[in-house]
Structure formats: structure tokens, C-alpha cells
Simulated scan of single mutants.
Amino acid sequence: MQPPEFLARHGGVARLAHLRRAGFSRSEVGRAVDSGLILNGRHGVYRLPQANDDFVRAYEANAAVTCVSAAGHYALWTLQAPSQPHLAACHRRLPRSIRSHRFSGNISTLQPPVLPLKDVLLHALQCLPELEALVMVECAYSRGEIDLDFLRRLLPGARNGRARAVLHLVECGSDSLLETVARVLFRRHGFDVRTQVYLKGIGYVDFLLNGCLIVEIDGVGFHLNKPQFKKDIRRNNVGAASGYRVLRYLYEDVVHRPEEMLAQIQQALATPPRQPC
């Protein structure tokens, strides 16, 4: 194995110490740099040209990636990309352009420089707006990767009350972050909410509100899947023929126009069926 291969297996970036511990001599590393296969950055950090920029920043700052910046590493749901890198360090020398988090463990051994999942989620709960933290935690919980009681024990005291409140919203069963956000919005608006309900002749629906209104939430690329689109039309027709009202919403409705969505649902539930002409 050559230095570029080693880097590719470890997030595309490493310190010289990591390369030396892996058995590479300084001359081997130097030849890889001279050939342009790897780049020599600041503070003894070596990277592939396509390496994750947050990983590079973390090594150069003696820090580790955390919170929403680490969501991609763990394939966690996110509502939006972070406006600045979120890094954790045991020192206070991170640049102002970094959203800094405190961490008392040994960061130097992390490879790639990403905090463990539990710490990533703790920082998200303490840092992010409620729904943004919720979707990250619920994703990990639904996959069986984290225990909620364990997280609660790591969030003691009044200062972590808001973070613990987010954990009370976590449930298992959502197929997407949009379903998670919609569920919270619907319940807070006072609707009677049932999720992933099986209806005879229709199959499973995302939501059944007040026992009579089917609400389906469609992801960003749903309309590109023609077979699924046809299936959804047929399901809508069966639902309507069976006496249910059916509403469908997109990412933009749930995330960017929730007030309009909720008002429309309220109107649909309050409006009686039209009488025959």
C-alpha cells in the first residue's frame, strides 16, 4: 500500500505521525508529494486533492469535526448544510470562522478527525435549532445506533433542559426527515396524528390525521421516479374512493412553508364534503 491509498482509507487526510505509524518512511511520503499524488498542508497535514475540507481544517487546528458538520460522515439526516464548519477542541484557539465546541477527550488519535457518534449528537442537541437536532438524533435512533436514555444521562442539569426536551420528541418509524418534521408540526397544531397507518386496499400511508385525512410527504426526487409516481396516483384515487381526503406535500412545503401547509390541512378538516349538484 502506498501513502495515497492509506489516505483514501482514512478520509483523504492524515498527519505525518499517522503515516509514520502506518510504516511509511519520510522519503516515501516525500515522493508522493513530489509526484502530486498527495498535498502537503500546514502543521504536518497531508491530504488527497479531493479530501474533505472540514477534515483538513480539523487536523490543522488540532480539532475534530462534530455536530452537523459530522452528519455526512455518519449518514445522518440534516435539514440544511451548515453555514460554517463545526469543530470540537480541548483548546480555545479555533478561528472565529469556526463554530467551536468543547471536547475533553484525546482528539489526536481520531482518524479521520470526527468525534464519536454520541458526542456528535450531544453537540447537535446543545447547538442546533430544535428540528435540526431532532432529525439527526431520530435518524441514528431509528437505525438502532444510539440509546435515548444514554444521551439523557449525558445531559444533566438545567442548562441542558432544552436538549433533553428534544429527546422527548424522538420516535422510531419515520422513513425520512420530512416525516419527522411533519409529525412534530402536526401534533403541535393539535391534530390527532397516526403515523405509518395501514389502510385496507391502500397500504401504508405516512399520516392519518383526525381519522379521516391522509397526508403523504414526498421527498425531493419523488417526481423523478415514474413507477412510484403512478403508484401514488392510484393510491390517492383508492383513498378518495374509500371516503378519505388525501393531501400530498413536498419538501418545500414542510420545511419552508409549514404555516401554509398547516392552514390548508386545518381547512380541509373543517370543510364538510360538498353536496351533489
Rank of each mutant, 00 (worst) to 15 (best):
F6Y: 13
F6L: 09
L7C: 04
R9S: 11
R9T: 06
R15F: 13
R21S: 12
G23P: 15
S27A: 09
A32E: 10
V33W: 05
G36M: 11
I38R: 05
L39M: 13
N40D: 10
R42M: 15
Y46Q: 05
L48I: 07
Q50V: 11
F55D: 03
A58Y: 09
A63T: 02
A64W: 00
T66Q: 01
T66A: 04
S69M: 02
A70P: 03
G72W: 03
T78D: 02
P82F: 00
P85H: 03
L87E: 02
A89P: 01
A89T: 05
R93Q: 12
R93I: 04
P95W: 05
P95D: 06
I98Q: 05
R99N: 12
N106H: 15
N106F: 10
L121D: 00
P129W: 07
L134Y: 07
C139W: 00
S142H: 08
L151G: 01
L154H: 08
L154N: 02
A158Q: 09
R159W: 11
G161K: 13
R164T: 09
R164I: 12
L167Y: 14
H168S: 14
C172H: 04
C172S: 13
G173E: 04
S176L: 12
S176P: 15
E179P: 14
L185F: 13
R187L: 05
G190V: 12
Q196N: 08
Q196H: 14
V197H: 03
Y198C: 04
G203D: 14
V205P: 15
D206A: 09
D206P: 08
F207E: 00
N210A: 13
N210D: 15
G211M: 07
C212R: 15
V215M: 02
K226L: 13
P227Y: 05
Q228N: 10
K231Y: 00
K231Q: 07
D232W: 03
S242L: 15
V254H: 00
I265L: 10
P272H: 04
Q275Y: 08
